[in-house]
Design a protein around this nucleic acid. Structure first.
Lengths: 270, 270
DNA sequence: GGTTGTGAACATATTCACAGCA
DNA sequence: TGCTGTGAATATGTTCACAACC
């Protein structure tokens, strides 16, 4: 790259792949640990192991940031910590508000990793008047009425939603109207937001369902392996002991009433 | 497909793309809501909107499961709920244990969405003897000593780790040795586990850092847009008004000591 | 020798666009 | 006519493998 800014837009341009961005915090965490142990340099191999990825991926990721390593040597730990922090925008501090101080909201408020990396909890907000003024994580809970004022006065651009699902959309609208442009949503709902607003979601139940899917598959494979025909069989059957073929052949959607029981709900902490 | 099982392995075979699996819970949630409102059928367009994806993706996703729709009509809600539940393995119930009953662990234990979808909290486990016997979410906390016994007696295959980072690896080893093959890890550490064990991680701090990255970029674009040169400029510069070029050109890793002190920052609230 | 940085090959995921069917 | 199901086109992400460099 340093060969002489000929082609390639400019200054290595913008456009770090999303997948890379998502891994930078992982690298940063690993680097921070090395930094604490005063390790001066690290190879892509070592760092990759610490971050739980493979080294080719790590090098490729870093190549999007620039050439921060030294061939034959590795990466300077402190220097990389700085570069990644800067790239992630962690050299400044980000005030965040947490809305919905139930079990989960309180747990988040108490979560140390929050503050440690450039994030500062500017306020805890809840709709329950009974909560107002009560201290959580050493901070008084404020009422939703104050939301707009808090956002504006503190210049908050990141909001965390930990309310019940039913309240989340409305809360997001108020946050956005007041100036928030990034939301971390713990409520099990799809938020619809205008362009330019980023939403990331964390959903417990979804993660468990994904695990269940793989878990089920493992059970199927085990069963298939156990049952006679060794190698070949594990391909087609696996998951289904049920009517996969039947269902495909006769998709008569005559109701069928599936479900574990009758229901759903998935509210949230409280 | 359905044309006559000639090529293509068998019965539509196995191999639902991981990206699709990750969205199935989303569809399921949207469908469940429709089901509660007694909506009988839904089009890919409507369902996609409810799940927050586009309809082509949704149809493609469903095509991996089979042909469960009716052309010109849409999908039968109840039937799809059943099919997806089955595919995800939610027609059976999965006992899970939560290890580490601090703020977060307690919040998870209280989380309703847990139980609602085929998951059952079989036990709460904590290393602190003072916690033993104390009720959390209507359930007595048990001591880590009991871990193996609990896993085995309840046939637990999914474990949730909500311990401090330092304890997570060891806890995962004990869980796995006792028979757990899927782990949902809330501790901010990379777990190293043997093949065949699935780990999914949820990390607060990582999500916030990703948001910060995009937030920073927005600020950069705003600044670039505000500063003279309109359209074209927003490409190459964006984030950096700082020494991106300098860093690239002179990668002299002479320490540099990056702390959050003198540097870059692109504007921002505060 | 050792390790980075990166084109090229491969793999996975998304989107388009329309044939096929109810 | 309306909507699904899916090949084909595109975009994004990962891995390989090696030239460039310390």
């Amino acid at each position: 790259m340093a060969t002489g800014r000929t082609h390639r837009p400019a200054t290595r341009s913008r456009g770090i792949p999303e997948a890379t961005v998502a891994r930078l915090p992982l690298y940063l965490r690993a680097l921070t640990a090395l930094s604490e142990r005063s390790v001066p340099t690290v190879s892509s191999e070592e760092l990759a192991a610490a971050a739980g990825v493979n080294s080719a991926k790590l090098r490729k990721d870093f190549s999007y940031l620039g050439s921060y390593g030294t061939r034959g040597v590795g990466y300077d730990v402190e220097y990389l910590v700085y570069q990644i922090s800067r790239e992630l925008g962690l050299t400044q501090d980000w005030p965040v508000v947490i809305v919905g101080i139930g079990n989960l909201g309180a747990a988040l408020a108490n979560y140390g990793g929050f503050a440690s990396r450039g994030f500062r909890v500017a306020a805890l907000i809840d709709a329950d008047p009974a909560m107002a003024g009560k201290p959580v994580a050493g901070m008084p809970v404020q009422h939703t009425d104050e939301l707009e004022k808090i956002i504006e006065e503190n210049g908050v651009s990141i909001g965390v939603i930990a309310t019940p699902a039913g309240a989340a959309q409305q809360v997001s609208e108020r946050l956005i109207a007041a100036g928030v442009t990034s939301i971390l949503n713990f409520a099990p709902t799809v938020l619809s937001v205008p362009d330019g607003v980023d939403v990331r979601k964390v959903d417990l139940s979804i993660e468990l369902q994904i695990l269940a899917f793989h878990e089920q598959r493992k059970a199927g494979e085990e069963a298939a392996a156990a049952a006679g025909s060794a190698t070949g069989a594990a391909e087609g059957q696996v998951t289904a002991e049920g009517p996969v073929a039947a269902a495909t052949a006769a998709p008569s959607p005559t109701v069928r009433k599936g479900g574990p029981e009758g229901d759903v709900p998935a509210v949230m902490p409280a």
